[in-house]
Amino acid sequence: MLDISNAKIAQVILLAREGKMAEAALEGFIADLNEDEQASLVAVLWVGRDDFDAEEIADAKRIAMEEATVPTEKYLMKEPLLADYLESGLDALGVDVTDVEDDII
C-alpha cells in the first residue's frame, strides 16, 4: 500500500508539530527519504486534505511521482497544516497514529 513506514510518517508529524524549532530537522528528514517514500508521504497528505479518497491512494502516489516539480521537502514545508493532514490521512487509511507516535516518543 504505502512505500513509507508508519513510524516515518509519525516522525514527520511530530517534527511538524514542533514548529520553527524543528523546521530544519523536518526538512532534512523529508529530504533524506527516498523517492517512493516521499511520494507516499505526499499521497497521505492529499488523502488527509480530501484531495483523494483512501481507496485512491495508489493513484495519489502515482500522481505525486509524476507531478513533482519542486523538492518534496519544500512542497511539504509550505503546508501549515502538515501534521493535521498527515494524521487525517493515516486515519482515513485505518492507521492509528497515536500508537505509532507512542512508540517513537
Rank of each mutant, 00 (worst) to 15 (best):
G28E: 15
V44K: 02
V97R: 10
A54I: 06
V44D: 03
L86V: 02
E23M: 10
L90T: 06
I13S: 01
E27W: 05
K20D: 11
L33P: 03
A92H: 13
L33E: 04
I105T: 12
I63S: 09
I63W: 12
A22Y: 03
K74T: 14
F29V: 07
L82P: 02
E35P: 02
V12A: 00
L93T: 01
A31P: 01
T72Y: 12
L41P: 01
A39T: 00
M77I: 09
D91K: 14
V97Y: 12
I57N: 04
F29N: 04
D84P: 00
D50Y: 12
V12Y: 01
A16C: 02
L33F: 11
A68R: 15
D102H: 08
G89E: 06
A58R: 12
T69V: 09
I30W: 05
S40E: 08
G48K: 03
A24K: 12
E66S: 11
L90I: 09
L2N: 00
E55S: 15
L15I: 05
E56L: 02
L41N: 00
D51I: 09
L81G: 13
V70M: 11
L15S: 07
L76A: 01
Y75A: 11
E73L: 03
A10N: 07
Q38C: 05
V97P: 09
F52T: 02
E35S: 15
L90N: 02
L90P: 03
A64V: 13
K61S: 07
K20R: 08
G48L: 05
I57P: 06
F52I: 04
E67D: 10
A68P: 02
S88R: 15
V42C: 10
Q38M: 08
Q11I: 08
E23I: 12
I104Y: 13
A25F: 09
R62Y: 10
E37W: 00
W46D: 14
L81Q: 15
D91C: 01
V100A: 07
N34P: 01
M1A: 14
L76Y: 06
E35Q: 15
E79D: 07
E73Y: 15
E73Q: 15
E55N: 07
